[in-house]
Amino acid sequence: MTAHWGYRFLVRAYPAGPRRDEVLDTLLALGRRAPSWREAANLLRHGLRARLGRPASGAVVAVALLVALTTGFFAAALSTRAAWEAVPDYPSGARLAEITTTVFPSLPIEGGRDEGRVFRDPTGDHQWLEPFNEDFAYAGYSFGPAGMYVSGDYRTWFGQARQRLIDAGWTVREEYPTGATDIASGLLEPSGRALVAERGPLSLHLETTVDVVDTPAGEFYALASLNRWQPGWVTAVGVVFWLLGGLAGWLVIGWASRRTEAVGGMARFLSAAATIAALVFLTPLTLLGVIGFVAETWRFDRPGQPFWSWSMVWGYGCNALGVLLLITALIIAVAGGRARHEEQIGPDPRFHRSGPI
């Protein structure tokens, strides 16, 4: 009898060897036709666990999870960075003029976008081996009145600008006062207002204030900036590559674990030590990336830094050191370990029957 193709695919979660063949033969003998969702999850869970070897060790599972999360993070960062190259640029011509004149009608306007099509780095330093400035962020388009200032009361003008944006199809997500905080009382001393609005793929931040030095009497400073939300398809690319990168990391750490399992002495110790040291440097970076990815996906704040921005400045080289240590651990496993077919963990026997007991 020929096993269902789904079983043949699922048992590949096990490393090549006698145990994989044994699991498939068992399914054949039991006459299973197609895997249920519970059987699929069971085979994948035990198969991937078997790839780590060392059945009695729980530490290897924790290490593999952290490595998988980290490699997934880097894969998602690289893939979304590449995907952003296909995201449409800011509007221009009449479309841009419609936005700028909605905010500043009847005023001469000056504006410009940050250097860099997708991201800006205020230091101007784009060398791979040097950390970027902590202000590394998405490139935006800023615009304002040619003379920097607008005549009148900022409160009245701001309310009118807000209504103009709403009438033009913008949704105001947030509005708040700005100003200095009184040291004695801790209360805000309002001297301006700001808002964040969105329309389609664009986010608009508008701020007014009278706090700018040399602001003429009876006038106020005003500035607006456009940013782009991360498109949903870019987020989907990130999720897919995070999963693929995590799977690749799990498989590699499993291969290294099995290769060094039977090896004692210095090679095994150095490989494990290098991996753990790498995770000390990289795990905080990865966790920050997870938080940033969720925030960027759910639009908790106006677009600013990409979810992987900390990888550019983390510890002034700690991220590079962590990657180097992971590579070192892999090299040690290749050079000092030896492959063998270990005793592997099989799937839960309850799922070899027609259903769970």
Rank of each mutant, 00 (worst) to 15 (best):
V196E: 09
R268P: 00
G58T: 13
N227E: 12
R8G: 15
A329T: 04
E189H: 04
Y14R: 07
G249L: 08
G124K: 10
S257N: 14
L107V: 07
E207R: 15
L285A: 14
R117I: 01
E85F: 01
F241K: 08
A180R: 15
A59I: 05
S92F: 03
W5P: 15
R193P: 00
H352I: 01
L321C: 09
G355Q: 14
S185E: 01
A29R: 15
P35Q: 13
G72H: 09
Y149Q: 12
F9K: 13
D121M: 01
R32C: 06
F293I: 06
P201H: 11
Y221V: 02
E175G: 02
G169E: 03
L202I: 11
G116N: 13
I357E: 15
A277M: 13
V196H: 11
R12F: 00
F104Y: 06
P15L: 09
D153I: 02
F300D: 11
S142N: 04
Q160V: 09
T235G: 02
G112H: 09
L28S: 13
L279W: 10
E174Y: 11
S225K: 06
A77N: 04
E115C: 00
R228Y: 10
A94S: 11
F293R: 05
L202M: 12
L52M: 10
G245K: 13
G304S: 07
G346W: 09
G265T: 04
S203T: 04
V252M: 14
D214V: 02
R258V: 14
R353Y: 10
L251Q: 03
G112M: 05
G254D: 12
A273I: 10
G346E: 10
L188G: 08
T26S: 12
L285M: 15
E22W: 12
A41T: 13
L187R: 06
A277Y: 02
V103I: 07
W310S: 00
D135N: 08
L288N: 11
I109L: 09
P15Q: 11
Y176W: 13
P356T: 11
H126E: 15
I327K: 10
L28M: 14
F307S: 02
C318T: 12
S79R: 03
F136E: 02
D348T: 06
A64C: 09
S309K: 05
L10A: 14
D121A: 08
V63F: 10
E342K: 02
L78C: 02
V334M: 12
G254K: 01
A335V: 03
R193A: 08
R45K: 11
T101A: 13
G238H: 02
L206C: 05
L44G: 02
G246C: 01
G31V: 00
R338A: 15
V252C: 07
E130Y: 12
F220M: 04
Y149K: 09
T297A: 10
R302F: 07
V313K: 01
A41W: 11
I253E: 15
A248I: 03
A236N: 00
G169K: 03
A295G: 04
G6F: 07
P131R: 12
